[in-house]
Simulated assay, not measured.
Amino acid sequence: MKTQKAIYQSSLPSNTRNKLVLRRTRKRFNPKIFINRTIETTAIVSLLFTGFTGAGAMGCWGMEIAMSSRNWQHQKNICLGMMLVSFSGFLGSALIGASFSIQRDKF
Results as ranks from 00 to 15, higher is better:
Trp61Asp: 00
Gln75Trp: 10
Lys76Val: 05
Met67Glu: 15
Ser86Cys: 08
Gln73Val: 05
Met67Gln: 15
Asn71Tyr: 08
Cys60Asn: 07
Arg70Tyr: 02
Met58Ser: 04
Leu80Lys: 12
Asn71Lys: 09
Asn77Gly: 12
Gln75Lys: 13
Asn71Val: 12
Arg70Gln: 06
Gly59Ile: 10
Gly62Glu: 00
Cys60Arg: 02
Ile78Phe: 08
Ala66Gly: 06
Phe90Lys: 02
Phe90Ala: 05
Ser86Ile: 02
Met58Leu: 10
Gly89His: 10
Gly81Thr: 14
Ala57Lys: 02
Phe90Pro: 00
Ile78Gly: 03
Gln75Phe: 13
Met83Leu: 04
Met83His: 03
Cys79Arg: 06
Gln75Glu: 14
Leu84Phe: 11
Ala66Ser: 09
Gly59Glu: 13
Met63Tyr: 08
Lys76Gly: 07
Ala57Ile: 01
His74Arg: 13
Gly62Asn: 03
Asn77His: 12
His74Leu: 10
Trp72Ala: 01
Ser88Leu: 15
Gly89Met: 13
Gly59Gln: 12
Met63Ser: 09
Lys76His: 10
Gln75Thr: 14
Cys79Leu: 11
Asn71Trp: 07
Arg70Gly: 02
Ala57Gly: 07
Met63Val: 06
Gly89Trp: 05
Phe90Ser: 02
Gly89Thr: 13
Met63Phe: 08
Met67Ser: 15
Met63Gln: 09
Gln73Glu: 10
Ser68Ala: 15
His74Cys: 05
Asn71Ser: 12
Val85Cys: 11
Met83Glu: 08
Glu64His: 03
Lys76Ser: 07
Ile78Thr: 11
Met83Trp: 00
Ala66His: 05
Ser68His: 14
Gly59Leu: 15
Gly81Asn: 15
His74Ala: 09
Ser88Ala: 15
Gly62Ala: 05
Gly89Gln: 08
His74Pro: 01
Ser68Met: 13
Cys60Met: 14
Val85Gly: 07
His74Gly: 04
Ile65Glu: 06
Gly59Cys: 11
